[in-house]
């Protein structure tokens, strides 16, 4: 019995809790990608760098708050800085829309042109972030680190395996939960939310019904920028901030959005967790886990790891390919490709 408990705790510690936290972060990012795809109808390659931009502002404001001695008790100071960062990021997103995308929208350019334009925006944002904060790793988490420490968990339960639950993980799961619920309430019940869904469903019909496209697009950017900043900050608190890593997160975001069914917000959330679960469970070494469960002489010799951890991004892409082959519309019947 203790062995089973130990195995469960081990798996929770190294797979389930990280999947919940990482999956929530991916879900927020994929929501941004999917909203832009649903309303503006292009795959936004600049999303990762928009996230990096927002997180950079959070970090700068956090540093300033720390320097004047403000703190948020046991919670990270970054949460206080977040609203300011969201405002800046929204301004940036609206500015890029005004300066870049609106022109192509009026011309009704093909999606490929939009994507190339977003590559341009990606370069610009990437340059700005590296210019201001540099290309290196930044740690900005402060306050308490753990909700449950591994050692006190062992002490409490008397098990061999410890369970650590970081504040950043708890915060991520909590904040994402609240955000997702309010986003769905907004999309389902408010006038603007309904207008957005109508516009996403059928642009011409929505225009005929008197929906102002510019307003819909503006609200989309506001939501996307806010989600990107929050996702970026939570990811940065959980791991660390590095501009290049944020750029690379683009791939799991796309994978999550497409797996769930692109253009469908619920799909993005499901997709986020599917991708996170596959990435972590396929690259986890099950040796210790199996040792608890099987008789001693059956214990495996190798690490029992399907793929090395460096293949993380490859896993998200493999899922993407599988979905494209088997069910191209994604789990929730998004737009047909």
């Amino acid at each position: 019995m203790t062995d089973i408990m130990n195995a469960t705790v081990l798996l929770s510690n190294f797979v389930i809790i990280p999947v919940l936290a990482y999956g929530s972060q991916l879900a927020l990012g994929a929501l941004g990608v999917t909203l832009v795809y649903g309303i503006l109808r292009f795959a936004n390659f600049a999303h990762g760098d928009l996230m990096a931009f927002g997180t950079m502002i959070t970090i700068l404001v956090t540093w300033w708050l720390q320097s004047i001695g403000v703190s948020f008790g046991p919670l990270p100071t970054a949460l206080l800085a977040l609203p300011v960062a969201i405002v800046f990021t929204i301004a940036m997103a609206l500015f890029t829309d005004r300066a870049v995308y609106r022109f192509y929208r009026r011309k009704r350019s093909t999606p490929a042109i939009f994507v190339i334009a977003s590559i341009g925006v990606m370069f610009v944002l990437n340059g700005i972030v590296r210019f201001i904060i540099g290309p290196n790793d930044q740690q900005f988490a402060d306050g308490e680190r753990f909700i449950i420490k591994a050692r006190s968990f062992k002490h409490m339960t008397g098990l061999n395996e410890g369970l650590a639950f970081k504040v950043s993980q708890g915060l991520t799961i909590g904040i994402v939960f609240v955000l997702v619920i309010s986003l769905f309430w907004f999309l389902q019940n408010t006038r603007t939310g309904k207008a957005m869904r109508a516009y996403s469903d059928n642009e011409d019909l929505a225009l005929l019904s008197g929906i102002d496209p510019e307003k819909v697009v503006m609200v989309t950017w506001i939501i996307t920028a806010a989600l990107a900043t929050i996702a970026g900050t939570l990811y940065g608190l959980d791991k660390s901030f590095k501009p290049f890593t944020y750029f690379q997160l683009l791939l799991p975001f796309f994978a999550a959005a497409i797996v769930g069914g692109i253009g469908k917000p619920v799909g993005a959330i499901i997709g986020g967790f599917v991708v996170a679960f596959s990435e972590i469970s396929i690259t986890y070494a099950y040796k210790k886990f199996l040792k608890y469960l099987v008789p001693e002489n059956w214990a495996p010799e190798g690490l029992v790891q399907f793929l090395s951890t460096d293949y993380k991004f490859a896993v998200s892409f493999l899922i993407l390919v599988l979905v494209l082959l088997i069910r191209p519309m994604g789990i929730l019947k998004g737009r047909v490709i």
Partner: peptide, 24 residues
């Protein structure tokens, strides 16, 4: 595998494949 997808999907797919090649 990937041709025949819509243009921006092809972009995402090829971006992913290039990352896989580097990972390998």
């Amino acid at each position: 595998i990937a041709l025949g997808l819509r243009s921006d999907y092809l972009a995402i797919a090829t971006l992913g494949i290039s990352e896989i090649i580097i990972a390998i």
